[in-house]
Every structure is written in structure tokens, then in C-alpha cells.
Design a protein around this nucleic acid. Structure first.
Length: 313
DNA sequence: AAGCATCTCAACCGCGCTCAG
DNA sequence: CCTGAGCGCGGTTGAGATGCT
């Protein structure tokens, strides 16, 4: 028992919930609903704070909770979604009916620990049986693309960007550009402070900044750029549809964006899909050009990274 | 069997957002 | 505008379970 910072209740129980408490909470919620969590403890006769009641209900007592182990299909979806949105557990959970953000977070934290103990886990193009060796603890090669020739991007070893390889994403997982608006609005976007070119750098997943920092790897990758006009959209759509489909998410995204693209809608129409993977982004610096990083470009960069000398970053 | 290490998972903490006053 | 309450979220904790030697 003790005071609790978040509520006015004088006596507040903490720790594990007893069956009696569970019963009280279930009885109250099933008959009254939960309009205001701060009122629930008092009305349900519980010496808990409202937040504790909410957590217990959402994570354990609510009737549509899905019990049991995470299935391989669910795991696949979690991994895919995490590669896209990072540690946004609630968002990931919203794609897995009956699973809670807490459960997925716990699952991931166990999962990633295992993965990080196996440093040879690699990014691997779909269908590749023998991925090139790639340890997490070695220095990444520095690669980038010369973006002066958009139609035919070439590797430029003099520039300072590092590999696009994602140190955490499981294979086969291509790296994605994220919608410019979404990243910028969260303030996580990083552009190079001393970079005079129009190239911007992104976290392949901005929400996983901490993961990259923990691994002491740069969270950046370059954009392979070439511009497309609106009348090139059908080929862009085709390109997107030919990409590696991952757990249905990408397919969903493609369908969603195909409509926008076919209508030739401007970028603000696309920002609704900012949490989904995209191979293109909207670059204000070049006057609203569509910038495309195609899957083949990404793979080219990945391949090239292994043929380059290792350099200290 | 015992003791230690590691893992799992429910629960807590605190930050940040929203909204009403 | 400012402020504070309420809520949702992600990070973290720690007790109990499980695995290992």
C-alpha cells in the first residue's frame, strides 16, 4: 500500500492482481464499461490506481485477448512490421488481433536478444540461400551513390555514407525509404549538416534509433535517386508491385498507394501512408520531384558494399 | 539435487499528447 | 494562451519460472 503519483487514492495496492481483484474489475467493466479509468477503482471497489486497472484490463482481462504462444505467422508479421515502424508496439499490436502491445514488446525484447547474440544473422535478398557473411560487430563498409546522374546512379566511394544494410532486420528485408512528411513531423529525420548535395540521410527505421546506437552503427543510408515525372507513375507502381512482398503489409501499401499514384495525387495525399514502407519519397529540395529508391538499387548497394574495402567510419 | 544464470511476462514508471476549463 | 487531469504509450523492472552445469 502507498501513495501513488498518478491518482488521489490514499491506499493503493501494487503488484500482482489477486483473483478477487480481477473479478471485481471484470464485473465492473462488463456492466458499466470504462469511460473514465480514474473513476474505475472507486466504483469497482478496488484499491488500485486507474492506470493499473486500465493496464490489467487491456493486457489481461479483456475478453478478446488471444492467448497462447505467438504463431510463426504472427512472428513473421511482427518482424515485418517492426522493420517498418520500429518500437511502436501499439501500432504493431493493432495488426495482430487479440495481441497486446505489452505482449509484443516482451516478445520482441526476448527475440531481439537472441538475434543479437547471433551476430551472423544477415540481411538476405529473397530466395538467396547463402547470404554473405556479415557480423554486427565489424566495421561497415562505406558506400554511397553518386546522385549527380539520377538515371544511372553509381557508387561513389569518396562520399561519407555507410552501407544501407540494416543491422537488425531479419532477412529477407529490403530497406525502405520512409515518407518524408512522417519522419520530419516526428523530428527524427536527420539530414547531413555538412552535406552540400541534395542527398538526405535517413534512419532506415527512425524509431529504432536506440538499436542503432546500441550497436554503434550509423543509422543512416543514402538515397539512390532518380527522378520520375507523374507520367512515369504506372512504371513506378509496377516496380512497387514487383518488390518482395512481406507478410501482406507491403501489398496492402502498394494497393493503397496505387490509387493515389494513378490519380496523380500530390504528396500530401500520400502522407497518410507514412507508416508504411515506400521506395520513394518526396523531396522539397528538388522542387517536388519524386525520388525513387528501387528494390534493385537497394540490392545493388548491398552487393556493392561487400566488394568495397572496409573503412573506419 | 543444488545453485547459479537466464528468460519471461505482468506490472510499474514517467513522458508526452490531448483536451477542457 | 496557460494549466492540469486523464490517458496511451514505450521503456524498464523484478519476481517467478526455466534452463544449465
Amino acid at each position: 500500500m502507498g501513495h501513488h503519483s498518478c491518482c488521489s487514492q490514499q491506499k493503493v495496492r501494487r503488484g500482482l492482481w489477486s483473483p478477487e481483484e480481477d473479478e471485481k474489475l471484470i464485473n465492473y467493466i462488463t456492466t458499466h464499461g470504462y469511460g473514465c479509468w480514474s473513476e474505475v477503482p472507486l466504483k469497482a471497489g478496488l484499491q488500485r490506481c486507474g492506470k493499473s486497472c486500465r493496464l490489467r484490463w487491456i493486457n489481461y482481462l479483456r475478453p478478446d485477448i488471444r492467448r497462447g504462444r505467438i504463431t510463426p505467422e504472427e512472428e513473421k508479421l511482427i518482424i515485418s512490421l517492426h522493420a517498418i515502424v520500429g518500437n511502436r508496439w501499439a501500432h504493431i499490436a493493432s495488426h495482430l488481433p487479440g495481441r497486446t502491445d505489452n505482449e509484443i514488446k516482451n516478445y520482441w525484447n526476448s527475440w531481439i536478444k537472441k538475434k543479437l547474440r547471433k551476430p551472423t544473422t544477415l540481411l538476405q535478398p529473397a530466395g538467396t540461400l547463402d547470404p554473405p557473411p556479415r557480423a554486427l560487430d565489424r566495421v561497415e563498409p562505406i558506400i554511397t551513390l553518386n546522385n549527380t546522374n539520377h538515371a544511372n546512379p553509381t557508387l561513389d566511394q569518396n562520399l561519407k555514407f555507410k552501407s544501407v544494410l540494416d543491422p537488425i532486420a531479419p532477412s529477407p528485408w529490403p530497406l525502405f525509404m520512409l515518407d518524408d512528411n512522417g519522419i520530419a513531423s516526428t523530428g527524427i529525420n536527420q539530414s547531413t549538416s555538412n552535406d552540400t548535395s541534395s542527398t538526405e540521410m535517413y534512419y532506415s527505421n527512425p524509431n529504432r534509433k536506440h538499436d542503432y546506437e546500441a550497436l554503434q552503427l550509423p543509422p543512416l543510408y543514402d538515397t539512390a535517386k532518380y527522378s520520375m515525372e507523374y507520367n512515369d507513375m504506372p512504371s513506378l507502381v509496377e516496380d512497387m508491385e514487383n518488390t518482395t512482398a512481406v507478410a501482406g503489409v507491403e501489398e496492402q501499401f502498394c494497393v493503397q498507394n496505387k490509387e493515389h499514384l494513378e490519380k496523380k495525387e500530390p504528396s500530401d495525399q500520400w502522407s497518410t501512408s507514412q507508416q508504411y514502407p515506400t521506395f520513394f519519397t518526396w523531396d522539397d529540395d528538388v522542387g517536388g520531384e519524386v525520388i525513387l529508391t528501387s528494390p534493385s538499387d537497394v540490392l545493388t548497394m548491398v552487393d556493392a558494399s561487400f566488394s568495397l574495402p572496409w573503412q573506419q567510419f
